[in-house]
């Protein structure tokens, strides 16, 4: 094991890591918001909206992100739509993960007994207020761990952006591996960087879990 060349190439890896973080932040924001929309559609009172939501979830969740990103990046220019590689990657990851996160939100909301909503309405709350005050706070607490899962999956999915020439961490590491023929040192370093980024996000969610524990009473 010889990590000297890794240190020499630290700037390359750090630039890659910065790009990975930027991709992850974009996709996390997009998917967290998009997931809300998807859950809203899936639980709508109107059947057509429910169908749209379900169709979106099935298509996004059941096909690989690699193909989705290729279609956005290589396919859209033929239709006259030009997005940068970065935008294409963030959009593709946001769309797919909106489906995953939408399902997580929905599971959380549906796990709360419908009587709670009935009770809130009986107390004179409007449906919107019941959702905001009674249902969402409980649901969000319950879904923090699976949400954390999905956030970490998003961080690691950013590596797919390397297939459309975004210079992120995986692309940097592949270049380093190709140059040095030192797979173990390169992979170990890259794994540690990904671990650090994931641990950061997991840490924030853990704090949220402590701050808002699931009330078991």
């Amino acid at each position: 094991m010889d990590f000297g060349f890794i240190l020499n190439n630290a700037p390359l890896l750090m630039e890659g890591a910065a790009m990975t973080v930027a991709l992850a932040i974009g996709a996390l924001l997009g998917a967290t918001i998009g997931g809300g929309v998807v859950a809203g559609l899936r639980m709508s009172r109107h059947a057509p909206l429910r169908c749209v939501g379900a169709g979106f979830v099935e298509i996004m969740r059941n096909t690989p992100i690699l193909v989705q990103i290729f279609v956005l990046y290589f396919g859209l220019p033929t239709l006259g739509v030009h997005m940068s590689a970065f935008t294409s990657a963030v959009l593709a990851m946001s769309l797919q993960n909106s489906a995953y996160i939408g399902e997580i939100y929905r599971a959380g909301l549906e796990s709360i007994h419908p009587r709670q909503r009935e009770a809130a309405l009986a107390l004179g709350m409007m449906p919107g207020m019941a959702l905001r005050v009674i249902l969402l706070p409980q649901a969000l607490r319950r879904v923090l761990p699976p949400l954390g899962n999905q956030f970490i999956i998003i961080i690691k999915d950013t590596s797919v952006a390397s297939t459309i020439a975004v210079a992120e961490l995986t692309q940097a590491s592949k270049l380093l591996l190709d140059r040095s023929a030192a797979p173990y040192e390169t992979f170990a370093t890259v794994a540690l960087i990904y671990l650090a980024i994931s641990a950061g996000v997991a840490g924030v969610l853990k704090l949220a879990e402590w701050r808002y524990p699931v009330r078991v009473s």
Binding site: N149, I152, K156, S159, T170, P183, Y184, F187, A188, V190, A191, Y194, L195, A196, I197, S198, A199, A202
Partner: peptide
């Protein structure tokens, strides 16, 4: 969860 699966498999 934090380490890429590719790295775990190769490793």
């Amino acid at each position: 969860r934090g380490v890429p699966l590719l790295v775990l498999l190769i490793g």
